[in-house]
């Protein structure tokens, strides 16, 4: 029995291909980010665990949700952006462009695969972390909502970057000068209440801050701001970025001349 109708099989195949693409190199795309996150955890928790408490919880418990979400976001971005830039540079993007897959289906397939990769990496870090630390999970649905919405937002951002970049070094610039600073300065390692008022205000302009804080709220039940505000900001950002991405795909920007 065919579970997928013929009309949906095109985008479904593209989604499956994107999943298989990152799974074929899972040592690099899943194991490596899990390892990196655990090294951060080891170093920071060792140094700060006995000295710092944030929102009344010990530092390691505060840090883990932030590290998980940072990896979720970075890997969701990496999935769509690296796939697109590789396909463009190697020229095999035409195999998809020649097909009847619409721009909306293209968007959904790349977005879904980015979400899956983000969630797989996040789950990997969580499963290893809870071997060592007893981590509460106060609002599981909030955790899932922020993980899915956050990875969708970064997946869309990755599509934009992948379409815009013509060379690998342009993509590296995107990663190193936008994604890395935004994720490191989002409150993964600290509460923004520990910052001077000016930097607190600046932090609130960073959409990564809302994703990290809302996700952490799901685990700990405490955060820098209300999860409803975070969810609204993340949802609105996703909506806005999706419109830009769909516009680029519809007009064929840098894909169809």
């Amino acid at each position: 029995m065919n579970l997928i109708s013929n009309s949906m099989r095109g985008p479904w195949t593209l989604f499956k291909k994107e999943l298989l693409r990152f799974w074929r190199v899972s040592f690099q795309t899943v194991a490596a980010p899990v390892m990196t996150a655990l090294l951060y955890l080891l170093v920071f928790s060792h140094v700060l665990e006995s000295r710092v408490q944030v929102h009344g919880v010990n530092y390691t418990s505060f840090l883990i949700p932030g590290l998980i979400m940072m990896s979720v976001l970075q890997n969701a971005f990496a999935n769509s952006s690296s796939s697109l830039i590789q396909s463009k540079v190697m020229g095999n993007i035409i195999f998809v462009l020649l097909t009847p897959i619409s721009y909306l289906e293209f968007f959904l397939a790349f977005l879904a695969s980015s979400i899956v990769r983000g969630l797989v990496v996040g789950l990997g870090i969580y499963l290893v972390a809870i071997i060592f630390i007893d981590l509460p999970m106060v609002h599981p649905w909030l955790i899932l909502a922020f993980a899915v919405l956050g990875s969708a937002l970064l997946g869309a951002f990755g599509i934009i970057a992948g379409i815009w970049a013509d060379k690998f070094d342009q993509m590296a610039a995107f990663q190193n000068f936008i994604i890395m600073p935004l994720s490191f300065l989002s409150g993964v390692f600290y509460s923004i209440h520990s910052l001077p008022p000016f930097w607190q205000a600046v932090s609130q302009l960073n959409p990564f801050f809302y994703m990290i804080d809302g996700f952490r709220y799901g685990f700990l039940g405490v955060g820098d701001i209300s999860p409803a505000i975070s969810l609204s900001v993340v949802g609105a950002s996703f909506f806005g970025l999706s419109l830009i991405t769909l516009r680029m795909l519809k007009t064929g920007y840098k894909l169809r001349g």
């Binding site: 095109g10 479904w12 195949t13 593209l14 190199v25 190697m90 095999n92 035409i94 097909t99």
Partner: peptide, 30 residues
């Protein structure tokens, strides 16, 4: 329409049969 491009482009992640199945799948064929 089927198009054979001039350049030798390929997807390095997959083998020949997988590529052909994916390509057919993009067109709704299972």
């Amino acid at each position: 329409l089927g198009v054979v491009p001039q350049e030798l482009v390929f997807d390095p992640f997959f083998n020949v049969r997988e590529m052909l199945r994916f390509q057919a799948g993009y067109f709704g064929r299972g």
